[in-house]
Design a protein around this nucleic acid. Sequence first.
DNA 1: ACTTGCGTCAACACTGACGTTGAATCACGC
DNA 2: GCGTGATTCAACGTCAGTGTTGACGCAAGT
Lengths: 213, 213
Amino acid sequence: MSGPQSNIERRRLAARAEGGEEYQTKLRQLVNVAADVFKEKGYEAATLAEIAERFGSVRASLYYYVSGKEELFQEAVRDILARNLADAERVQDLDLPVREKLDKLISQLISSYEEHYPHMSVYVQENMQHVNHEPTAWATQMVRETRRYEKVWIDLLQEGMDEGVLRNDIPVVLAANIVFGMCNWMHRWFKPGAKLSAAQVADAVSKVFFEGM
Amino acid sequence: MSGPQSNIERRRLAARAEGGEEYQTKLRQLVNVAADVFKEKGYEAATLAEIAERFGSVRASLYYYVSGKEELFQEAVRDILARNLADAERVQDLDLPVREKLDKLISQLISSYEEHYPHMSVYVQENMQHVNHEPTAWATQMVRETRRYEKVWIDLLQEGMDEGVLRNDIPVVLAANIVFGMCNWMHRWFKPGAKLSAAQVADAVSKVFFEGM
DNA sequence: ACTTGCGTCAACACTGACGTTGAATCACGC
DNA sequence: GCGTGATTCAACGTCAGTGTTGACGCAAGT
């Protein structure tokens, strides 16, 4: 029903619809800058002014690319979840021993900290904070997909315990939280290109987890 | 130099100096409520209005107890770090095998999620976010103590590796981040009184870590 | 009954951040 | 040179949240 309200909004939508080469590029750059700031300051504390400054521009110009702060955030984490979920479910359906499937899950999760830096960290850092209690369609989908993602892990862990591949004296949910912790704590310290590669981390986590479990 | 600026500030300082029984109690209750809200919404998104409401009062009344939001936060996490650090350094100086010292560190850290709930979660969740780049005395002390705390772990881990008690094919810093992850991820899921006790968690983490390392 | 001081409250002022506007600037085909 | 659309800008209006104010109810002591 309600078309574009503001002038800048109309022009943004036009530019976006047309899909100009350079426009797309700048948009992606902007989102990357925003992700940096979100990671450093956290979503709430991050200001559009600072994002604009690092982008080499001024706050008002951002609205030529995005509708506001929230959209900037959603763009930053948009694909992360969908991708990780798809990857995880693909692994689940493979015809492999449970142990190897879990191993793949671990290295996939850890790689995404390197491949999608810093977006992945932002997702992990902020996810539940301002998504959890907002009833927007986007928020509920985030929550639902996160649940599904976790379910893949839990199902595989349970399977491993049943088969005797993993120790079963630890509640499966607790085991899951322990692995998640090992992996997701990366958002606090991991920086791509700094001594440790994702592959090294994945290798170490894999060792500790499987020999420990 | 500068005495109390505002009226309410003078009265707050008076009340605090006098140290009335009931005053202290209400202050603690207030800080607890604030910690709850900080944990749920995050520091930035939390509002004094909501804190006051849950406290059963109104925003302005809070200033009779604290100088503002920041102090409320500092009160909430004030003792956590100092205590954990002291505990850790005490363990370090014990005359025990490395393995048992590390085991104690783990269970101490995990217990504090139960004992100081939700303050501990708030500390872990927020710590670096708005402390890291602020040059206040309190912030720098937080950072310094956190460093010292981590150093205790790393030194012990290194010692364990040197002695051959722990595997040494994983960089010590990485090993530390893996344990921290297992423990500190609790801030995302742990609730005291809900099925899993801290003791159970500590037991599981301890098993996984030591058998994995 | 009268003071005293604690805890509370409704209301105001200030600040920072957001979203928007209308015009200025720039690139570029004609 | 000139129009045309893309991109940027300084400036404005608005709003939520914070800190402050001055006064009010009220229980306790005298």
